[in-house]
Design a protein around this nucleic acid. Structure first.
Length: 829
RNA sequence: GCCGAGGUGGUGAAACUGGAAAACACGUAGGAUUUAGGAUCCUAUGGCGAAAGCUUUGUGGGUUCAAAUCCCACCCUCGGCACCA
């Protein structure tokens, strides 16, 4: 009886599908559990061996929860709009829809080969008009709620290709295709007011069972900072008009050390003050230069900071009345705070670097307080040749600060703030790093924005009955050259009638970004095949929110934040009853190619699951993906590892020989084995619950190794199969059906995947004998087998009587004995 | 640069709350079985050492009876950085 996975696996996959044993039932007496994968992008390359890692993990978990008695929803779909497909269409002239269909077909087949227990009857596809009518519906909702607005914002622009570029298409400031230097071009774009939800997005993180590091990344991304807005009055050499510049700071305590102001190059006041700036031409040139840089280049500390002084105008430091210079420098960003900063070179490293370059004064106003011994070695300001080497950015005690000298930073911040508030030169302010979300793309392969521009009525949203607004079929996907979407070139489509006045109007030609479809897809599985276009509250309320969400950590911020944002909007609109879409989140590590690089076609290091499964079987593949390492850490693919899991399955397979010989009634007892069985149930159960699949499998390996060399009974095999089933669903079903089911006809309820999860006896899990470690001065010198409950007295007596120990403590005085029950005894001499 | 994670044998890794470093697996060596090969089974396997023993968790320091685990500094690798998804 040889183990032949190819035959077994295909057969069971077919039977399961036909009987629909993994289909979720809407509504049930059982408690519900919704487990969701981040759905894939259907790329032309198909799945490589890295993709299924998360899918296998959710599948193991889904099997486990089903067998624990939950009504389980485990669906799958496709996030199919986006750049790669569109670029492929441009290159080949094949319509993106056809490419998408082809890619989905291929990837679905790959997923099915793995034997994943998805409910395929709920499959969704974001590019299906039946899907994106809802995406458009939600956009209209955002619009009506005042959360979608138009603004003029810059995009990356290649002057040679005459096309807008995604950040990804800009390589070191140059166009990926032609190598021309990329510039910026202003366009009217749709923007979503995610900032209106900043506080709630921040606060509600506390409700979530997510990895702490992901929450931390979101917190930093939202970037709430509480501080003060401080007004600097300006003094012009030629004009009497009073102008002022507000700056935002969290460190009012350092105000006395402020020696200059810095404006972002985009700051509006610069053009306003044009007539008073004596070197305006140079300033203008600088501003133009900085437009070429990416934001990351601008704020990077590796490259030297640049800037230019605005001559002819000075700012007045409100705390001491001193006139200080004003600079324009691109390390200050327009979309954070007020777009202007007060520079305190002694206490901010960026300001310090800038000040040193332009020879600006550095005034120290905070001194570190030395508390006790530890901070002495900190020596914050290294003074060499009488100057500072670096800025001291921490808190401390104020110096050189007039009547605030001697105060602690924290107190001084409030005092100085209040003092200036009284003089009307400051107010408390809260700023977020989070920026509104630019929601339009000048592309074809995305959801059309359901808006028309009417000459009479202006911006007019479509009505629900006008949805879906379908993407028109076009022959060319090439950019228009104007920066507009290729849709703008289809006159027949663009020209339309205003839904409000019936007059002539033009359609919005921007499309939505790929994120749009993935912001609400967890709801889409419940609206599937909903021809009436009605929001199925009953199903939504039953299944949602998602109980467990699994996907890559690379989505830590954007996708997860955007989906949370839309959920809150839908909640506010009264469409859903939950405030957070994903209660529990588990992130997974990438599987890299054997060379440690990401797998990609361009690198030529892609490994396909197809060939692996054909050679070793889906069960061995599943097992290896779970066994290869901790679930949330990145790991290199190594084909050698799968040999181990295949061998393990063969060993398990061979165990049935005895059942074959002796029948299933044999009930022999082996106390040692019985204990191991119960320990294994405990370990596997707990490890699956904690996503520690690798150690669950190693425990199963230990069990199989033991069964192999001991006098096992069929009951032991039964338990083994029940525990192994989520990992190796095909092999276990095969053996299960052969020996543990009476009828020859397959019925859903007889499937191993419908058997209850085994329970362990806590009494049998405990060990009676343990190995007591005997240490002298913390070093292991001997070991002894003792009863688990040994007392300290007995242990001490035992330890001191050991020959080896006697040798080590001979002639020395015993100072202390430390006893850790059930573990060790340490004699300190 | 900023934010986040990580660094343990030849390799993937394990080690719960500070308490036996290296479970499980790959690889390698030796043996059994076999006409042979493969498969399978058994034994060994961090390093140094004949052995007693010494030593070992990126580097350096610290706390502790005891540190892979806690603290400080540094080095390296990976993920994200708002138009890739």
């Amino acid at each position: 009886m040889e183990y032949n996975p190819c035959k077994i696996e295909k057969r069971w996959q077919k039977i399961w599908e036909e009987l629909g044993i993994f289909k979720a039932k809407d509504f049930s007496k059982k408690p519900k559990f919704y487990i969701l994968d981040m759905f894939p992008y259907p790329s032309a390359e198909g799945l490589h061996v890295g993709h299924p890692r998360g899918y296998i993990a959710t599948d193991v978990f889904a099997h486990f929860m089903r067998r624990k008695g939950f009504n389980l929803l485990h669906p799958m779909g496709w996030d199919a709009f986006g750049l790669p497909t569109e670029n492929y269409a441009i290159k080949t002239g094949i319509h993106p829809e056809i490419i998408t269909r082809r890619n989905i077909k291929r990837m679905k087949k790959q997923l099915q080969m793995i034997g994943l227990s998805y409910d395929w009857s709920r499959e969704i596809n974001t590019t299906d008009p039946e899907y994106y009518k809802w995406t458009q519906f939600i956009f209209l909702l955002l619009y009506k709620m005042g959360l979608a607005y138009k603004a003029t914002l810059p995009i990356n622009w290649c002057p040679s290709c005459k096309t807008g570029l995604a950040n990804e298409e800009v390589i070191e400031g140059k166009c990926e295709r032609c190598g021309t230097e990329v510039t910026k071009k202003d366009l009217r774009q749709w923007v979503l007011k995610i900032t209106a939800y900043a506080n709630r997005l921040l606060k509600d993180l506390d409700l979530l069972d997510w990895p702490e590091q992901i929450k931390e990344m979101q917190r930093n991304w939202i970037g709430k900072s509480e501080g003060w807005e401080i007004v600097f009055n300006l003094k012009s050499q030629i004009s009497k008009i009073k102008n002022k510049i507000p700056v935002f700071t969290t460190r009012t305590d350092t105000l006395f050390g402020c020696t200059y102001l810095v404006l972002a190059p985009e700051h509006q006041i610069i053009s306003k003050l044009k007539s008073q700036i004596s070197n305006f031409k140079s300033v203008e040139r600088y501003i133009k230069e900085s437009k070429k840089k990416t934001e990351r280049e601008r704020i990077s500390e590796v490259k030297e900071k640049t800037g230019i002084e605005i001559r002819g105008i000075k700012a007045i430091n409100p705390v001491n009345g001193r006139a200080i210079p004003i600079f324009v420098a691109d390390y200050v960003l327009i979309h954070y705070g007020t777009g202007a900063i007060m520079a305190v070179p002694a206490h901010d490293q960026r300001d310090f670097d800038f000040a040193r370059k332009y020879n600006l004064p550095v005034i120290e106003v905070i001194k570190p307080y030395y508390e006790k011994k530890e901070s002495k070695k900190e020596a914050p300001l290294i003074v060499s040749d009488g100057r500072f080497d670096r800025a001291y950015e921490k808190e401390g005690i104020l110096i050189n600060s007039d009547r605030f000298t001697g105060m602690k930073s924290r107190e001084a911040r409030e005092r100085i703030g209040e003092w200036l508030t009284k003089k009307n030169l400051a107010k408390k302010a809260v700023y977020f790093k989070l920026r509104d979300w630019i929601f339009s793309r000048q592309r074809y392969w995305g959801e059309p924005v359901p808006i028309v521009h009417c000459q009479k009525c202006g911006v007019v949203p479509l009505r629900k009955k006008d949805l879906p607004l379908k993407l028109p079929r076009i022959k060319k996907y090439l950019p228009t050259g104007t920066g507009e979407s290729p849709l703008a070139a289809i006159k027949k489509w663009v020209q339309t009638i205003c839904p409000k006045c019936g007059g002539s109007a033009k359609r919005e030609t921007n499309t939505m970004p790929q994120w749009a479809g993935s912001c609400w897809y967890f709801i889409a599985y419940l609206l599937h095949k909903n021809k009436e276009f009605s929001w199925n509250r009953k199903k939504i309320n039953y299944w949602l929110p998602v109980d467990l969400y699994v996907g890559g950590a690379e989505h830590a911020v954007l996708h997860l934040l955007y989906a949370r944002f839309w959920t809150k909007v839908l909640y506010d609109a009264g469409l859903i009853k939950f405030k957070e879409p994903f209660l529990k989140l588990k992130t997974l590590g990438l599987i890299l190619a054997p060379d440690g690089q990401k797998m990609s076609k361009s690198r030529g290091n892609v490994i396909l699951p197809d060939e692996i499964i054909e050679k070793y079987g889906a069960d061995a593949f599943r097992l290896y993906e779970m066994f290869m390492g901790p679930f949330d850490e990145a790991i290199n693919w190594n084909i050698k590892g799968i040999i181990g899991t295949r061998r393990f399955l063969e060993k398990a397979w061979r165990l049935q020989e005895k059942v074959e010989r002796q029948g299933t009634s044999d009930k022999r007892q082996d106390v040692r084995l019985e204990k191991l069985i119960h320990q294994t149930i405990k370990k596997v159960t707990e490890d699956i619950e904690n996503f520690k699949f690798n150690t669950a499998i190693s425990q199963l390996m230990i069990l199989v190794n033991n069964l192999q060399s001991r006098d096992y009974s069929p009951q032991h095999i039964k338990t083994l199969l029940l525990l192994l089933a989520p990992f190796a669903p095909h092999l276990t079903e095969e053996i299960w059906q052969k020996y543990f089911i009476e009828s020859s006809e397959f019925k859903a309820k007889n499937s191993i995947h419908n058997q209850p999860w085994p329970k362990y006896d806590p009494k049998l899990v405990k060990e009676e004998m343990i190995t007591l470690v005997i240490q002298v001065n913390g070093k292991v010198r001997d070991r002894a087998k003792v009863e688990a409950g040994i007392s300290e007295k007995k242990a001490k007596k035992l330890a001191l009587s050991c020959e080896k120990i006697k040798k080590w403590i001979k002639g020395k005085e015993i100072k202390k004995v430390i006893f850790v029950p059930g573990k060790l005894i340490n004699i300190v001499v």
